[in-house]
């Protein structure tokens, strides 16, 4: 098993964190994993992305030319990365700003992650709703391992943050 995932969105949407949480979850799952960020000069309103490779065996390049999965949180990122998805690959898209048309070239899962996060009470957890959606679509990593990562990453004693992230993840899985 090898899964190459590109996660992209606008700076501030938490795409780096989404990738890190996913990568740590993969580590807890006992997989080999690499996380590789875009570390160039980025501009406000532009795109930010990271690449996560999860595998049962040793991983060569952490750089992803063709992805099995795209998790895309804004339109500029979709433009930038849609050509990088493999034929019949999976696109997970935040449709808060509009739906995309179905395509024979890819499997599309689209939900308004940002709107869902707003309803939950914190726009910042849109990324975790998207992650939840990925977890249920692919089942590479058990949600329990992601919850463990939340516990590890959340500031000590801040149960509120832990709770809303958990709610976001579960909401994403249900979609």
């Amino acid at each position: 098993m090898i899964e190459r995932i590109i996660i992209a969105g606008s700076g501030g949407q938490g795409v780096m964190l989404l990738g890190k949480v996913l990568a740590q979850g993969a580590m807890l799952e006992g997989k080999q994993v690499t996380w590789f960020p875009a570390y160039g000069p980025e501009v406000r309103g532009g795109t930010s992305h990271c690449m996560v490779t999860i595998s049962d065996t040793e991983i060569g390049s952490p750089y992803i030319a063709k992805a099995d999965v795209l998790i895309i949180l804004n339109n500029p990122s979709l433009e930038k990365f849609k050509s990088r998805l493999k034929n019949k690959g999976l696109l997970i898209f935040d449709s808060s700003l509009g739906l995309i048309k179905p395509s024979k070239l890819m499997e599309i899962i689209q939900f308004p992650f940002t709107e869902i996060a707003l309803k939950l009470g914190n726009i910042k957890v849109a990324n975790m709703v998207a992650l939840g959606s990925y977890l249920s679509a692919r089942q590479v990593i058990k949600p329990a391992h992601i919850l463990e990562v939340f516990q590890f990453l959340a500031p000590a004693g801040n149960l509120k943050i832990l709770e809303i992230n958990r709610a976001a993840l579960e909401e994403g899985e249900r979609l």
Binding site: K20, A23, M27, Q32, V33, T34, W35, F36, P37, Y39, S61, P62, Y63
Partner: peptide, 10 residues
């Protein structure tokens, strides 16, 4: 190199 420096692994 930049890959080794930036990449995260267990």
């Amino acid at each position: 190199d930049g890959i080794l420096g930036q990449m995260m692994e267990p």
